[in-house]
């Protein structure tokens, strides 16, 4: 897998992107779910595949490749990618910790979890650690309020969090070389 060139003077958004064979096959399969004349319907699922294939974020070249695959205008992809909160338009850490901070989770201590992670990783909500391993995000209700406080990392839900559990998770993820993606099986 290619690495985004964080040091490039024009930013990361000009690093070329091509779909991997496996990702392309997955995209083609998804497109069969919709009538051929409405293949644009596959856009959101395909953006997820592209995001995973591009180190967890959607660069302009990655979005352009999606437009070309679906035969639609680039702008049709940009307007969708910018609307949905799960699409990252900037590089993110290998493990994005998304802590729910909506009311039911707040009642059960979500703010303390966020404060602890901020302290432990030395970053603020919304930031990525300098080593590129963790990004911390506060997000809205993830449908897990009965098991609050909770966080999502890739496809996994981590529920009934305590400070100890958060620490264990951070240690485990730091040692995990593979990126956590939403599309993980």
């Amino acid at each position: 897998m290619k690495k985004p060139d964080h040091g490039h003077p024009h930013g990361d958004n000009i690093v070329p992107f091509t779909f991997s064979e496996a990702a392309l096959a997955e995209c083609r399969e998804v497109m069969t779910h919709y009538p051929a004349e409405f293949s644009k319907s596959a856009l959101i699922p395909i953006l997820h595949i592209a995001q995973t294939d591009n180190d967890g974020w959607l660069s302009v070249p990655a979005m352009n490749a999606v437009a070309e695959l679906l035969g639609i205008q680039y702008i049709e992809v940009y307007e969708v990618a910018t609307f949905y909160s799960m699409f990252h338009l900037q590089p993110v850490g290998k493990h994005v910790l998304q802590v729910c901070f909506t009311a039911p989770c707040m009642l059960r201590g979500a703010d303390d979890v966020i404060a602890h992670i901020e302290k432990r990783l030395g970053i603020k909500e919304g930031q990525t650690t300098p080593d590129g391993v963790f990004t911390l995000q506060a997000v809205q209700c993830l449908g897990s309020c009965g098991t609050a406080p909770m966080l999502q990392c890739g496809a996994k839900y981590h529920e009934h969090l305590t400070i100890e559990k958060v620490d264990e998770l951070i240690d485990k993820l730091r040692a995990e070389p593979k990126r956590s993606n939403f599309t993980d099986r």
């Binding site: 779910h33 409405f38 644009k40 319907s41 856009l43 959101i44 609307f83 799960m86 997000v139 809205q140």
Partner: peptide, 25 residues
């Protein structure tokens, strides 16, 4: 199964249909 991408408004049924058509919700 069609997966969305994080937008509460896509629960509103016509936003959901827009989203299912590959558009903003």
């Amino acid at each position: 199964v069609h997966v969305g991408a994080g937008a509460y408004i896509c629960g509103e049924e016509t936003a959901l249909l827009e989203s299912l058509e590959g558009k903003r919700g």
